[in-house]
């Protein structure tokens, strides 16, 4: 597997991906690799990039680095087994970051959401005529 096609993600995201793969909602040739030292791999990769190490040497060093970790590639039914084992662990903390709510500025439109909000009137399109024409005549007019 080339480094370019490898994506390292946290365990919660990996579980989400495994669920989709297991449910066979997609037919992508994705290989899941569990590793106990993805952080070390990333540090080595960053180090090599910082010192301009590229090409075959870089790929070889990264390959050896990845093989040094305790890891296992998962395919097919093995994926199901591994997912079962993962789910028995402690549940992930599903936290999220709140991007600040912008302040209301003077001159901006008032909020119109919620049950108490007045009924909003949509601005009519500029290019729609007020009255529509008769349209295309029907092939079989009703008697």
């Amino acid at each position: 597997m080339s480094d370019e096609s490898m994506m390292i993600m946290p365990s919660a995201e990996l579980k989400a991906l495994m669920k989709v793969l297991m449910s066979q909602q997609i037919s992508e040739p994705i290989e899941v690799i569990l590793s106990d030292d993805a952080g070390g791999y990333l540090r080595t990769k960053t180090f090599l990039e910082a010192f301009g190490c590229t090409g075959w040497v870089r790929d070889k060093i990264l390959y050896n680095r990845s093989r040094a970790a305790l890891q296992r590639a998962l395919r097919g039914q093995d994926l199901y087994l591994r997912l079962q084992m993962l789910e028995k662990g402690a549940p992930d903390e599903q936290e999220f970051y709140v991007v600040g709510k912008p302040k209301v500025e003077e001159g901006a439109s008032p909020p119109l959401r919620g049950g108490d909000a007045p009924v909003e009137s949509e601005k009519p399109a500029e290019n729609v005529p007020e009255k529509r024409g008769p349209g295309r005549p029907r092939k079989h007019p009703s008697p």
Binding site: E95, Y97, V98, V99, K101, P102, V104, P111, E126, N127
Partner: peptide, 30 residues
């Protein structure tokens, strides 16, 4: 909710107070 896959983080972005449905369809009729 918005998910950032660059940092693998979930973000929540509350709507601004001035936001209305027409802001979500700025090309309405255009």
């Amino acid at each position: 909710f918005t998910y950032c896959s660059t940092t693998w983080e979930m973000l929540q972005m509350p709507m601004p107070d001035w936001w209305t449905s027409k802001h979500s369809k700025p090309y309405y009729g255009r």
